[in-house]
Computed example of a mutant assay.
Amino acid sequence: MMNSHKQLFPLFSLFLVLYLLGQRVVLQAEASPQHGPTKLFVFGDSYADTGNIQRTVSNSWKDPYGITFPGKPAGRFSDGRVLTDYIAKYLKVKSPIPYRLRKLMPQHLKYGMNFAFGGTGVFNTFVPLPNMTTQIDFLEQLIKDKVYTTLDLTNSVALVSVAGNDYGRYMLTNGSQGLPSFVASVVNQTRSNLIRIKGLGVKKIVVGALQPLGCLPQETATSSFQRCNATSNALVLLHNSLLNQAVTKLNQLETTKDRYSTFVILNLFDSFMSVLNHPSTHNIRNKLTPCCVGVSSGYSCGSVDKNNVKKYRVCDDPKSAFFWDLVHPTQAGWHAVYNKLRTMNALQHILY
């Protein structure tokens, strides 16, 4: 009998160890989801748009846009990939299908959807396309139509791009008078949009801080692309300060039940400036000079005359330029910003 007990004791000990290990695995599984997000929903403007604007409306569908990726114009406001594509890459999902193409390519619905339209803002702009409120309406309708389920939304991330089109319209209409109050209204509307997206069931919502508008080529052209406009960047700092305050308050309202439901700011200002201040680190040689410009002030990147003769010129190496046209980064520019965000550990908070 004693020998039997001696044989049983190691077996019991082994069982106990395996049981405790099993309990530990269960606890770890409960502490963090086993799977990351499977879908990306995108709202905003040309920094995130991957083809929602009609071909006949925008230069983004004309040569030389898309020459780096996918090798032809595809509706992206760059020579290649944009912010959406890099966020999708980080999430390890395919870049979501543009809303405009949802019925033509239903097999891609499983990756989410891109509702961003170039030129739009949180309010109406000079571009008569869906503003962000309407873009969120589109997702809400798709949920009502059962295109996306509650589980789909739970396993998703939303990317919100606010790149400054509201300010462009305001300043052309009103100048700088009352600008601080308008900045507050833009941020307040952005906050309302974030809350609404969360209310639809999205568990992680990422909003881009405003990039340094004063460093865009349309601003630096007056200095022959040598200096950023400090006045414009002061506006950006006000916007970003108010946005940070708003998002911090939203996160403070998070409950234990919604511990994975967080609002995250992508610090595009600091990441842009880091690349522009140290361009050689990212193999960038032309930091403020745009790669693609019109041959004169009456033309822009992608312009042709009535005889279809090109009225633009393109730099020899888009991969060495940060800016593609007067407003948008090249693929190389976005890639550098993406890498900087990664080194800043700004992206890890996107994952559950």
Rank of each mutant, 00 (worst) to 15 (best):
M2L: 10
M2K: 09
L11D: 09
S13P: 00
L14P: 06
L14C: 10
V17P: 01
Q23N: 06
R24Q: 07
L27G: 07
L27M: 09
L27C: 10
E30K: 15
A31H: 11
Q34T: 13
Q34M: 15
T38R: 07
V42Y: 04
G44K: 04
T50C: 11
T50V: 08
I53L: 07
S58Y: 00
S58K: 01
K62A: 08
K62S: 10
D63M: 13
P64E: 05
P70K: 15
G71H: 07
G71E: 08
R76H: 10
F77C: 01
S78R: 04
S78C: 11
S78D: 05
S78L: 06
G80Y: 04
A88G: 07
A88Y: 03
A88T: 03
K89W: 13
Y90P: 00
V93R: 04
V93M: 06
K94L: 14
S95K: 04
P96K: 15
P98F: 02
L104I: 08
M113T: 05
A116G: 09
A116K: 05
F123W: 14
N124T: 04
T125H: 08
T125S: 11
V147D: 05
Y148I: 09
L151D: 14
D152T: 09
L153D: 04
T154M: 13
V157E: 05
A158V: 03
A158R: 03
G164P: 03
G168L: 05
Y170H: 06
Y170W: 11
T173P: 07
T173E: 06
Q177L: 14
Q177G: 08
G178S: 10
G178Q: 11
A184Y: 07
V186Y: 13
R191P: 00
N193E: 15
N193L: 15
N193A: 15
K198P: 04
L200I: 06
K203S: 11
K204L: 04
G208M: 03
A209K: 03
G214V: 00
C215G: 07
A221V: 03
S224D: 02
A234I: 14
V236Q: 03
V236I: 09
L238I: 15
H239R: 13
H239D: 10
N240M: 08
V247C: 09
T255L: 15
T256F: 13
T256N: 13
T262Q: 12
L266G: 02
F272I: 03
M273N: 04
S274D: 05
S274N: 12
P279C: 04
P279W: 01
N283D: 15
R285S: 14
S296G: 08
G302Q: 01
S303F: 06
V304D: 01
K306M: 06
N308T: 13
V309M: 05
K310N: 12
Y312K: 02
R313L: 10
V314R: 12
C315E: 11
D317S: 08
W334C: 01
V337H: 00
Y338T: 08
N339L: 10
L347K: 10
L347D: 00
Q348I: 08
Q348R: 12
Y352Q: 14
